[in-house]
Design a binder for these strands. Structure first.
Lengths: 218, 218
DNA sequence: CGGAACATTGAGAGGGATCAATGGACGTGG
DNA sequence: CCACGTCCATTGATCCCTCTCAATGTTCCG
């Protein structure tokens, strides 16, 4: 990310602490005091917000290299839960140290701003998905997004193992688990994907893109 | 926001530029080069993202004192449109100057981080709304949020003038304009609000809260 | 091996979308 | 200042997508 050796050295001192989280355990919960950002080193997380009456909404899934915890800055307390979907390890980055180093290194400063901006842009695209897409489009967009992020990490472009349940997918996409399951089945019938439980093989990426973006021929 | 006179003075030099935007005009469009954040001084904005196939989604409404443009940081280009819903004026805050001053004043630095974090948290609550609420709940939550923000600016707790159309409300809330209209009518029939075009009088705030949060009696 | 958690599939109901027609408000220009 | 056109809002009728309720099947783990 464009840092020189000196900067890297300083940065290393910030991210010296590691933390392991077992599958199903929380990295933090709503209301916890905010102290640090976390960089996922391995494993897979979900973040979710909860209403007073018990409904909850998955707001994102985070994989290796992604940053969790920025929700806590504004009020000094976390406003969502971060749950490990498989055994995971994170780098703990105490936020006061991040801010301190950011004042010293403009590269790092700008990087922090970019990470937060990226999260905002990502959230906007989820709002678009939730606000204006139908079930098939949502699931297709979800699969394409997941596989694209995995591919960027050296995994296959066409095969993936889902780390979350149908219910969690549904919560993220604003649909019920049964609808998620049915939509998977529909894609299978159409020959677009193969599904065996958590394993998904995308046989026809273009078909998925077609579903997300009907006639972008214009 | 806890700045001393010296800091205020420096800050004034950053936000010296003003810009007027006529109703219906864009503060910026998707793809525009990112240079600055904008603080709304007067007027009312919407931000919206657009898909390749022409659908669009209102991602937020911004009023006096709120900050627009953070979507542009990550890629150096804006990823949404910002449109004035009435004649408006903004303070232009060149982002490189914001970053420069942030390195000097920790108070300002933290303030910038908070603003971005607040946007992330807000987006998450919209995702909750879009993902798990029904039409009535969405509109009730929307009205309560609007009136609360207006009240914080010295306006009435129970009366407001909507600056956006039913279609824009619908786009924000993930429903069609007809459904927005019908839901308004339903609230009127139930005696919860009065509506005359853009004018809304909330006669029973508790009833609205009840709709958003059914039996939080637990 | 047995139980719990997760997933699939079916049948039926309902909330919101869609299509369509009418009514009001606003602003522009005669 | 009024007339007209345009934009916006309301309301009705119908349809369909997704939810809900329910039963069954599968996988994983103690």
């Amino acid at each position: 990310m464009g840092l020189n050796p000196e900067e890297m050295g300083k940065l290393d001192t910030v991210i010296s602490t590691r933390r392991r989280i077992k599958r199903g355990a929380a990295l933090f919960n709503t209301g916890d005091k905010f102290t640090s950002l976390y960089a996922v080193r391995s494993g897979f997380f979900k973040t979710c917000v909860t209403t007073a009456d018990g409904r909850d909404q998955v707001t994102g899934f985070q994989m290796t290299g992604e940053i969790i915890g920025m929700d806590g800055i504004v009020s000094d307390r976390h406003s969502c839960d971060a749950i490990a979907l498989e055994d995971a390890e994170v780098c703990v980055m105490p936020f006061d140290q991040v801010e301190e180093l950011s004042r010293e290194f403009t590269t790092l400063q700008h990087h922090v701003h970019k990470i937060m901006s990226r999260e905002i842009v990502r959230d906007h695209s989820v709002m678009l998905l939730l606000g204006s897409m139908r079930a098939e489009e949502r699931l297709a967009a979800f699969l394409l997004n997941l596989v694209q992020r995995l591919h960027a990490r050296g995994f296959s472009q066409s095969e993936l193992i889902l780390r979350m349940t149908r219910e969690e997918i549904g919560s993220y996409l604003g649909m019920k688990l049964e609808t998620v399951s049915r939509t998977f089945s529909k894609f299978v019938e159409e020959g677009t994907i193969e599904v065996k439980q958590r394993y998904v093989h995308i046989k026809n990426t273009d078909a998925l893109k077609q579903i997300v973006n009907p006639q972008s021929c214009r």
